[in-house]
Nucleic acid binder design. Structure first.
Lengths: 226, 226
DNA sequence: CATAAAGCTATAGTATTACTATCGTTATTA
DNA sequence: TAATAACGATAGTAATACTATAGCTTTATG
C-alpha cells in the first residue's frame, strides 16, 4: 500500500494556494510543519512568523505559497477532504451493497485514520485534530461567498455529494440526503470535540470512536428508514 | 406578554462579564450596539474601537464591562441560551406529552423567534444570526477548558440538559440523549448557514424554516424510536 | 557552459489590533 | 456635603498581518 501511495498525490484545488506547495521541498516542508504548529498552538496563536522560525525561513517565503493564514488553513482542510474522498473511493470500490458503502463512509467520517494510508509529509492524525477544532472557522466568515465562488470548499462538497448519492441509492424517496450527510460530517467533528472538552454535551467517551460510529450509524439508518 | 416580560431579566452567569451590563444604561447600550455591529461586520472585523465610536464612548469604558471581545461574544451567546431556556420553559409549561414538549424544543432550536417575547435592548433576530455564524468560535479555542471551568458554557449546557431529559422521558433506553440534543442544536445552526451560503450541502431552502423543523423532527423521532 | 529566470533570504516598514495605564471630571448615594 | 463609583480623554505598547524591495542562490534552458 505504501508503495502504491507513494506515487499518488492528493490534488487540491488551485485557488487555495498561490504556488502549489506540493511542487517543491520548501512547500512540502511548510505544509508539514504548519500542521504540527497549528495543532500545537491553535489557529489564533499560530502565525507565519512562528512557522518561518520553526522551519528556518522567513515570512516572505511562506507568503509566496499562501496569501494568508486563512488560505493556508483552507489548503490543509481541502487536502484533508480530498484525502478522505480518496480513501472512500478506495474502500468502497467493488462493494455492491449501498448500505455497506454508507457504513464505510460513516466510519471514515468518524475518523478512523488508517496508518497504512499516509503521505510522507503529512501527519494525518494532527491534521484530523485541526479539522475537528478549526475547520468551521474556514467558512464562518463574512468572505464565505467569495471563497465559495473561488472554490475553497470544493473538496468538502464533493465528498458530501458522493455520500449523499449513496443515501439516495438506499432510499430515493428520502427528502434530505445532502442535509443528513453534512450533519454527519459536522457532528463527527464536534462530538469528538465535546467528548474531549465539554463532556456533558455528549454520551461519547473520550477515545471511544466506536461509540461515535454507533451513534451516527443508528441515527442515519433509522432516519432514512432502513 | 410584553408587560410581563418587562419585569423579567435574563440572567447571565457572572463569569462572562467584569461588570454586569444589565445594571446600567451604558452597559445595555454596549450590548445593544455590539449585537448590531457584530452582525454587520462579523466577529473578525468587529473591534471595541469601532463599537466605542458607534456608541460615542471610548474603548476604556467597554473594557470595564468586558475583558475582551471573546468575553463579550460569550456574554451574548450565554444570554441567547438563557433566553431560549426561558422560552422553552414557558412554552412547555403544563404540556403533559413529552413528545409534544420535544417538538416544541426542536421548533425553538430551529429558530422561530417570536416577536412578542423580546427585550428592549436586544435585537433577537440579529442575535440569532450571530449565534449561527459565530458561536462555534466561542468554544473552538485552546482556552476552552479554562473557559468551561469558569462557566462560559453554563447556559448552553443547561438548555441541552433540559431537552435531553425530555428525550430520556420518551425513551429511557436510548443511549445517546445528550449527543442527539447537541447535534440538533448545532445542526440547526449550520444547516441555516449552509442554506444561505453553501446550498449544495443542504436540502433546506433559504428562509424555509419549516423544512429545517421537518428534517430535525423526523431525524430525532426516528432515531429515538417513536 | 553561459545566462536568464525562478526561488529564497534578509531586512525594513506600515496600519491595525488588543489591550493597559493614568488622570481628571461627572454623576450617584449615603 | 463628602465619599465613591462610573465615565471620558489621552497616551502608550507589543504583536499581528501583511507589503516592499534588493541581493543572492539554485535550477533550467539554449
Amino acid at each position: 500500500m505504501r508503495n502504491l501511495l507513494a506515487n499518488i498525490k492528493i490534488k487540491v484545488d488551485e485557488k487555495v494556494y498561490l504556488k502549489n506547495p506540493d511542487t517543491s521541498e520548501k512547500g512540502r516542508h511548510i505544509v508539514e510543519q504548519s500542521i504540527l504548529l497549528i495543532d500545537e498552538l491553535g489557529l489564533e496563536s499560530f502565525t507565519f512568523k512562528k512557522l518561518a522560525e520553526k522551519i528556518g525561513t522567513t515570512e516572505a517565503t511562506i507568503y509566496r505559497y499562501f496569501e494568508s493564514k486563512h488560505m493556508l488553513l483552507s489548503y490543509l482542510i481541502s487536502w484533508y477532504w480530498s484525502w478522505l474522498e480518496y480513501r472512500l473511493v478506495f474502500a468502497t470500490n467493488n462493494i455492491r451493497s449501498a448500505e455497506e458503502r454508507l457504513k464505510i463512509a460513516i466510519g471514515i467520517l468518524s475518523g478512523k485514520v488508517e496508518l497504512d494510508m499516509n503521505f510522507a509529509h503529512v501527519d494525518e492524525v494532527a491534521l484530523q485534530k485541526i479539522v475537528v477544532a478549526e475547520s468551521a472557522k474556514v467558512y464562518l466568515t463574512k468572505e464565505v461567498d467569495d471563497n465559495n465562488r473561488e472554490g475553497f470548499f470544493y473538496s468538502y462538497k464533493r465528498f458530501c455529494k458522493r455520500v449523499a448519492d449513496i443515501v439516495r441509492e438506499i432510499n430515493p424517496a428520502y427528502k434530505f440526503p445532502a442535509s443528513l450527510v453534512s450533519t454527519v460530517a459536522e457532528t463527527a467533528h464536534y462530538q469528538k470535540f465535546f467528548s474531549l472538552h465539554l463532556p456533558s454535551l455528549t454520551n461519547i467517551s473520550d477515545n471511544k470512536e466506536s461509540q461515535l460510529v454507533e451513534f451516527l450509524t443508528e441515527m442515519v439508518f433509522k432516519t432514512i428508514g432502513k
